[in-house]
Each structure stands twice: as C-alpha cells, then as structure tokens.
Amino acid sequence: MWSLPPPSLLHRLAAVAALAVGITVAAAASAKTVIVLNSDDDSLSVLDGDTYQETSRVYIGRSPNHLMMTPDTKFLLIADSEGNELVFIDRATGKIARRLGISDPYQIGFSPDAKWFVANSLRLNRVDIYDAATYKLVHRLPAETMPSHIAFSADSKTVFVSLQGTDRLIAIDLASGKVRWNVLVGPQPAGVWTRKTGTVLAAIMGSDHIAEVDPKSGAILRTIRTGRGAHNFQVSPDGKTLYVTNRVAGTISTLDADTLKVTGTLKAPGGPDDMVVTPDGQELWVTGRWRAWVDVIETASGALKATIPVGRSPHGIFMY
C-alpha cells in the first residue's frame, strides 16, 4: 500500500529535525532508510539501510512508541504516548507539519478503508476510536486492562484489541463502539494480526504460542507453538512468510503464512519486538527492546547481518 519516497527524503527529514536541535547530519543518499522510535529516550533514530549505521538521532516527544504512514501516504505519523500527541511528518518536505494533541496514543492504527483511526491507551485502560479524516473522537471505551495491539477486519467494520492485563482479546464494532465479543485468549496477549482468510492471530506473550481466533465468535480455532514470549507479527512483502517475535526466547519464528506451519527459527537476542522487512524480502529488521539495538537478519540464511546501536528501549520501526 505504501510507496517508497525519493532516496534522499529521510535525510532531509533528519537534517531538518536535527537542525532544530543544532546537530549536523550527513547528507548521503540511501536506497532504504529506517526510522526507529526509542521510547525511553524520547527520540527517533534514523538508520542508513546501506551502511547499517545510525545517521542521526533527534528528540521527537515523550515516549514515542509506534509509528505508521497515514492512509494518503502524505505523512509519517508518530504517536507520543506520554506527550499526548501525534506528530505528523510531511513526506514531501521532511518537516514536522503538525502536532495534534490527543490522549495517550500508545498503539495506533487506521482501518483499511481509512475511515477510522484507533489509538490504544495501555496505561489508562482505554480504546479511543476517531474519525480518521478529522481526528475527532467518536468513541472512547474503557478496556480492562492494558489494551495493547490492534488489528482490523478486512471490511473495516471491526477492530481487534489485545488486553495484556486480563488475558483477553476483544472485538469492537467501529461504527457503534460496542464490544462484539470479549474472550480469554491466553496469558498476556500482545500482537494481533488479521490473516487473508479473515481469522485473527494473537501472540501469547505469557506463553510460547500464537492463537488463531474466529473473528465472528472469538472462539480459539487452534494454537501454534512458536517460542517463549510470542510478541508480535510481520509478514513478508510477497505475503508468503509470517514472522513472529518471541521476546523471552530471543528468537523469531518463520511460518508459512497460508498454513501457519512453522518453517524455521531465527536468532534475535535482545528482546525482539517490532519488525520490518525490506521490499525485496531479503532482510528482516527487528528492534531489540532490552539491548538498545536493531538487528538486521538475512531472511534466507538466518545470518545476523548487522547489529545497530540505537537509543534506549527501541520499539516501533518503519522503513521507507
């Protein structure tokens, strides 16, 4: 859905942001650039995908945790949870275009039809549903407790949210704001992912597996063992491989996205969290939450290509 920007764009972004804090940034162009949010440092790191170096680190706001592109692809959206704001970075200019005050956006997501914007407040036990065009709050739901990750149904009618503190997965009707179902899914669920088939996957962080859930009833259809501390999902650009980070085991499981059969295990020490895959599918970039680094793993061989030091508690990651 998202296209790549001109090669030098992110460097312009980094340069503009860095100039604001009085640092100089190398202006070399790069074929791929990666943004990492260092949640305990209130900063973002700009990584060069060719040299595997951090080219700059800039202050962005309190506790940036997650980021994504807006549906129109004009802005990179960064959610500062403790700063209570969304930061809009203009892709064309690399400048911060806008800071929008909203309440504690921890995990964020747009529905596939771009009609809804959902922000979870993990700390305050609340799910906020906004009109994605205006960012006006439409529904605010209490969500006991620790609403964490987000996934949408393909028809954009339902959002699925994991509740880490109560071992539950809930389905919320976006139009009415009503909870359609609320089920026990496993201890401390984290990542949520909607498959092409429509079923929902939940990563069970307090255990060693993922669960496949019926989107209509919330019934658990099956579980698949991946590794201790199953945390989050990412799919390869060709849609064939599903990656699952296992935070406690320090590994990433590779699964056949169609059958959910585990096909391999990649080493990723350091508390693997969020992931991105390069457009050619050859590299998997993963934030190492506990070790303040980003690992670059060759997907074919599982070899560790690079470990890039970044700021404290790197969390969300995004590749241009």
């Binding site: 503190g165 401390q188 962080m205 307090g206 406690v248």
Partner: peptide, 8 residues
C-alpha cells in the same frame, strides 16, 4: 516474570 505469568 515469564514463569510467574507477569509478562504484562
């Protein structure tokens, strides 16, 4: 934490 079921 994992053993105690306190990963949240």
């Amino acid at each position: 934490l994992y053993w105690l079921g306190l990963m949240d």
